[in-house]
Design a protein around this nucleic acid. Structure first.
Lengths: 218, 218, 218, 218
DNA sequence: GATGAATGAGCATTCATTCAT
DNA sequence: AATGAATGAATGCTCATTCAT
């Protein structure tokens, strides 16, 4: 059993090594223009080796999404264990999300690109895509749970449907962070510079805006 | 001058005809898999003719963005002329945005795709990209103006910076609408169906959420 | 109309030029190991140009078969116009076949390879494959007609079914010529050299054998 | 010596096991698309193990030919031991061949494929290819022997050279059977269906044709 | 100006073979 | 002996762009 485990471990290490390389290349040149050759070269493995671990280029991308969403979920789950009002939990989940994408921008790009990949039915029905969907659902749940807690403890306006509210917050957060990232890349310079905005201020303000929108008014 | 003008007019008509064709193809098969040949065939012009009007495939995409953002701006500008409270103006701009992307989904995809294209320096520094940026800035301004009106007439909390708030609302709206579109395409089924959400409800709720967040509390 | 015709002519010339090149390469290295790049290089055209004229590699092969079978048919048809007994016609068709494959060995390889290509449904249902089948049917008919003539003029035993007999002769000829070609390539050396056989003697003997088999005995 | 023999026996068993697997796969998917991985999996051995027994993929194919031709020879040899006229022996050898390819179509395909493989000099000079050639020569001899018997007992026209006649009959038989197989696979439908032909009728007729061609006329 | 034939760099993927364990 | 992970050369095909007419 010892040996079996060693082998399996090595397999996973190799797989992660390839994903690391892929993430680096994607960060450098973007999803669209990343090629299999580049990934193989960066990972210092043969091109064929990639296909031992992943069925196709798309499935590498999906695997990156899976890895990223699992990491993010882990962090968000931890917020729910803390002793605070639901409203603060929601805000804290927002901050967690922000920190995560700051530290791991490649995953943010991956998440955005993910939907485009799923056009391929082959990929869509794969185990890894399934897991990816499940992760997304789970992440969504953390937001909804925090909202429910807040509605229960009175910190959040309970006239909203928590599921719908969760989706809105999820989508809106993606959008705002997306804008913030565009700025980092130098896009929409005129707009964003005129507003004198940095990532933290923008997201901070947004969390406050949402917080204000959902908080109970007495 | 008459003849010159006639010629120029014909040029613009032709250019718009090509863009129409490109939009149709993109609506049918998506941005990534649209080819120059398809566009030329649909436009009923030679492939070479495309290159008389556009420097590259990317520049066609940028031109579509430009056209779309100009159309959107026109509609948003009209909201500002109406006699209503600033808060309602903001909401109405949101509704205008929603109606626009419902009626012209191809532009929504185009806006999202646009940023990816800008990686190409050649495109980035083109006149048309410049105009595109200018349009985005202008659109942004309409939101800011509505916010300023609201802060002045007392319907909107004036403790926010209107520029920052504008960016947030812009980004958040994009994100929420993006989610709604994903649902239409059948993505994230598990999450979105569990929340029992349709486009109108989601956006309506979101506008209410933002409205609630920014409205002045007495 | 003049210009139109010139264009079309050029197109056909180019197409035939590519087929010439393909035939040469196939003669040199065999069907299986011929690559698109080799054909393009030999034809002195870009790789993409090949795909302007042919949908796929397989369709180039089918086109070669079509060209070859059309040429062969033309020659066989001419035999039927001659003033001779049916039995002699059959023998002369055999000799015509022999001369054809001697002068154009590449077509013999092509015919043998043809069936393997048809596995691809895409190719199988193409216009060119259709034409190829039609040519094969037509060629077969020439043999059957000669047999019918012979049965009518009393030179051929009319107790056979001419259609069945035609298929047999067709198949047997293919087989014998195939053996003869193997010898040319140095295969089955031991067998063939021990029999001290050259192509002409072998085929000549075979034609005599068949002739003897089908001739009427009084 | 006992132990040595045991080992050797095991080696041969393993070798044959691999060939069995290879034949099965080839029957299923055809020669061209059979892969080493498939063979290894079906044989339930590691891919590397294949290379302990066979130098290359081609040499597996050659080994299949060797096995098949040895089996066929065994059957044909038995015909020669029977008490019958030479002409009937020839016909019976024909029938034996027919029965063999009906029961073992994979060998028929293998024989046809064999020549293509021999282009590779490496394979051509191998021991196993040598043996294959020897088998073919031996099979040829059985036909020649039967012809000689017939010429001696007066049932076959002795104006032919028996070696040449043997080659013709061998080649022609291959050709006719090949046609019959094509029909089974649905090729040349138009031709073959118009002749209303089944395998047995075709081959039966062919044996009769040859028999008639070679039989002595008084 | 308008055309579309020609181009060829670029790509994802396959698979026979090797070799360290 | 047996294995199977690793390899990378090789391949068919695409498509944005050019340029001679």
């Amino acid at each position: 059993m010892e040996k079996r485990s060693r082998k399996e471990e090595e397999r996973i290490r190799r797989r992660n090594h390839i994903l690391d390389a892929a993430e680096q290349i994607i960060s450098d040149v973007g999803f669209e223009s990343t090629t299999i050759d580049q990934i193989a070269e960066r990972a210092e493995v043969g091109k064929g080796t990639l296909y031992l671990h992943f069925k196709s280029k798309s499935s590498i991308y999906v695997a990156i999404c899976e890895r990223g969403s699992a990491m993010l979920n882990e962090r968000m789950a931890r917020v729910l264990t803390r002793d605070m009002k639901g409203l603060d939990m929601v805000k804290e989940i927002g901050n967690t999300y922000l920190r995560f994408v700051r530290e791991n921008p490649q995953y943010f790009y991956a998440f955005n690109y993910y939907e485009g990949i799923l056009a391929d039915d082959e990929v869509r029905s794969s185990d890894i895509a399934e897991k990816c969907e499940e992760n997304a659902r789970e992440g969504m749940t953390y937001i909804v749970r925090a909202l429910q807690v807040g509605m229960q403890d009175g910190s959040i306006d309970d006239s909203y449907d928590p599921n719908q509210l969760g989706v809105m917050i999820w989508g809106a957060s993606r959008g705002v962070i997306s804008i913030a990232f565009l700025k980092q890349q130098g896009h929409h310079k005129k707009i964003l510079e005129s507003a004198d905005i940095d990532l933290d201020t923008l997201i901070g303000g947004f969390i406050q805006l949402v917080g204000s929108g959902i908080s109970r008014r007495d």
